[in-house]
């Protein structure tokens, strides 16, 4: 078996894991290919971003339509059930990808259950393609573990080999609980833990550019600092005096406030802020722009309300781009330091 299928919920770090593992295995002298049977794109007609990234990183000859041969969309069923046709496309593409590879890293859609209705969910495809599964767990509480166990067992019943689980984006405070409580519980159930990867901001934090892309709107200043990372989101609706307490507690934040709240925007600029989002289509006072320019903080003006902006931002998660060496190195480092990559490789043999 030379197929490794990476599964996990949205935001569990599948792309980072794919980047880390494939580059690590490549270093080990293996010919590694990347395959994403069901892709997605933010804009209809645009290629899957992970496919673009991996094609470049692994220097793959295959075209993007082969690396990500089908695309999911929230309304895919409206196009009719093209299950058989799509499966055939996927298999054809896989053949091409796998032809010259020692190892194919297969990435799942945003969630493993996507396109389950027509039998193209990740577990079914893993079974079709003969892949072993690496399941990523982004723990929030004990229920997260329940979900993972449920999924592991489902794979087992389906006859798909589960290589093991990796805990990703682990906040430092719960590392001990994972080691002391979760891992033994998984062991007892017969599921291996292949890694506990701590949260690193370079991988978990989105950039201001992503925020801009997601929210749209006008960039009033800070074109050159769109690569700043966003670690927190804060809404400013209180008085300056009470706001400062909150502002100071939060680092590298996006600060959302009305365009007419010059006082708040200026206060935020005196604390650690990655970007200011002004809502309601109200152009700010020039002084806000001047100060933001001095501080090099991007200011974004959107024409809808604060609540809508926050709702949109909830979709945000870290993303790796091909030219972002720092996050790519972090992804590899995470695999090297915190994952049993040797064990993964061995179990594929």
């Amino acid at each position: 078996m030379k197929n490794l299928y990476i599964m996990g919920s949205a935001g569990s770090g599948k792309t980072a894991m794919a980047v880390g593992l494939s580059l690590k295995f490549k270093q080990e002298g293996l010919r590694v290919s990347y395959f994403k049977p069901v892709g997605t794109s933010t804009v209809t007609g645009k290629a899957d971003e992970d496919a673009v990234l991996m094609k470049e990183l692994l220097d793959m000859a295959a075209p993007l339509e082969v690396i990500a041969p089908t695309m999911a969309s929230p309304f895919y069923l409206s196009r009719g059930n093209r299950s058989a046709e799509m499966l055939a496309t996927i298999k054809r593409a896989y053949q091409e990808i796998a032809r010259h590879a020692d190892l194919v890293i297969i990435d799942s859609a945003i969630f493993p259950h996507i396109m389950g209705t027509i039998g193209l969910d990740a577990p079914s495809l893993a079974s079709e393609l003969g892949a072993g599964v690496l399941y990523l767990i982004n723990v929030k509480n004990d229920y997260s573990l329940d979900q993972s166990v449920f999924f592991n067992q489902y794979l087992q019943y389906k006859g798909v080999p589960v290589l093991g689980n990796i805990f990703t984006h682990v906040p430092r405070p719960i590392q001990a609980k994972i080691e002391g409580v979760y891992k033994p519980l998984l062991d007892n159930l017969g599921f291996r833990t292949l890694g506990i990867v701590p949260r690193v901001r370079e991988l978990s934090s989105p950039s201001v550019a992503q925020v801009h892309e997601l929210l749209g709107g006008e960039l009033l200043t800070g074109e050159r600092n769109l690569d700043l990372l966003v670690e927190d989101i804060m809404v400013g609706a209180m008085t300056i005096e009470s706001a400062l307490g909150y502002l100071r507690r939060s680092n590298n934040k996006i600060f959302i406030t009305g365009g007419d709240r010059a006082d708040m925007a200026l206060a935020a600029l005196e604390t650690s802020t990655s970007a200011i989002v002004l809502t309601g289509g109200l152009y700010p006072d020039v002084k806000v722009i001047s100060r933001a320019m001095e501080k090099g903080v991007p200011v974004l003006l959107v024409h809808y309300d604060t609540y809508t902006a926050i709702e949109k931002l909830s979709e945000l998660s870290g993303r790796i781009t091909p030219n972002n060496k720092e996050s790519i190195n972090k992804a590899v480092e995470n695999v090297e330091r915190y994952c049993d990559w040797q064990g993964i490789l061995n179990s594929l043999k």
């Binding site: 300056i240 709240r261 200026l266 020039v286 002084k287």
Partner: peptide
């Protein structure tokens, strides 16, 4: 006043220190 502080901040561009 808060409104006054707001006027002052857009007037001179200074972030007025808190009145306290």
């Amino acid at each position: 006043s808060q409104a006054g502080a707001l006027a002052a901040s857009s007037h001179t561009g200074a972030l007025a220190g808190s009145d306290l």
